[in-house]
Design a protein around this nucleic acid. Structure first.
Lengths: 175, 175
DNA sequence: CTGGCATAAGTGACAAATCGACTAGGAGAT
DNA sequence: ATCTCCTAGTCGATTTGTCACTTATGCCAG
């Protein structure tokens, strides 16, 4: 359901193949969602079945034909309806916090190591997001579309930074 | 898979029925995970099948018998193994950021309203978490188990606060 | 000139998670 | 009377997530 909308959103920016979409999910969209390519192809087929997208085969030399998916009018309506729909309940899903919650039986040193491992992971992610943010042009100040896209990256960065601060504070006061 | 571990973690704190577990998922654990009762009962049955938990029927007056689930030694080992296992890749999953990312076609006022709706939701969540945090005793300073549980709530609070700050900053600079 | 990697575009099958509706009954409060 | 709480589930459909397998060319290193 949600993947349907995300893919529609991407197709609304430009026609794409499953391969193109996968690249987006691994880069530009990766700070708020992840999708496997099997999921992408499956959803794409469903979109076409439901008339929200159409396929156009674009021949290429030396490479397999591109199966370009284009959003339809119905697809645009569906996307608009999603954007305007009520916000779903916000269900946190943080496997790392879960580990910490249940880590009461671990030795102090083990807990410290767990927090350290997570910190390294978060730090790497932060560096990645900041590099992406640095690559953004200055269109993001004036153009609303570019601004909103940049804002989501900023949101991702703030989340990671908050987590790192939390990890440090948790480590410092650990009894 | 992950639910298996979370339920094992809760059973490790005290024997519980499916109903008890549901209450925990709706309160103490709700800032990092959510589970539906159908999932809980299904997982409980699976734990018993796999020998990670046992059931004891505790008769009650005026109420249905409690089907108390107790963690077994194998269950404790499984829980320990999970706590020590490598961290999985950290896949962000933020449907709200997704909306913002694709909101480029919306009117400025609509975007503002979208951000406002989210802010109200986050604010309510923050109030809820802060109330829970205030109810925590002072054991959380000395006792490691209590400390770690309190720390996860603190983590939840920091996440929500970071989001509210992001929403405000995004609103202020919206072109 | 062969083997491996990248590009390109998928398919298939299964496991796990999610969601919503339905069933069943007594106790106590408004 | 009706509503909520406590207790315990079940059923079925849809959605997600994971992993392995396929086909074919271009290009580079050894």
């Amino acid at each position: 359901m949600i993947l349907t909308r995300l893919i529609l959103g991407l197709l609304n920016l430009a026609p794409m193949t499953g391969y193109d979409l996968k690249k987006h999910f691994d880069s530009s969209v990766n700070h708020f969602w992840h999708a496997d390519k099997a999921q992408i192809y499956r959803t794409l087929a469903q979109l076409v079945r439901d008339g929200l997208a159409t396929v156009r085969t674009v021949p290429q030399e030396n490479y397999p034909d591109r199966q370009e998916h284009h959003i339809t009018e119905a697809g645009r309506r569906e996307l608009g309806a999603w954007l305007a729909s009520p916000l779903g309940p916000d269900r946190a899903r943080e496997p790392f916090l879960a580990r910490v919650f249940f880590a009461g039986d671990m030795e102090r040193a083990e807990v410290l190591e767990l927090l350290e491992r997570r910190r390294a992971q978060a730090q790497a992610q932060l560096a990645e997001f900041e590099a992406m943010h640095a690559d953004l042009g200055d269109a993001a100040v004036r153009d609303r579309r570019a601004y909103l896209m940049a804002a989501t990256l900023d949101g991702g960065i703030r989340h990671v930074r908050a987590e790192i601060e939390w990890l440090d504070s948790t480590r410092e006061n650990l009894p």
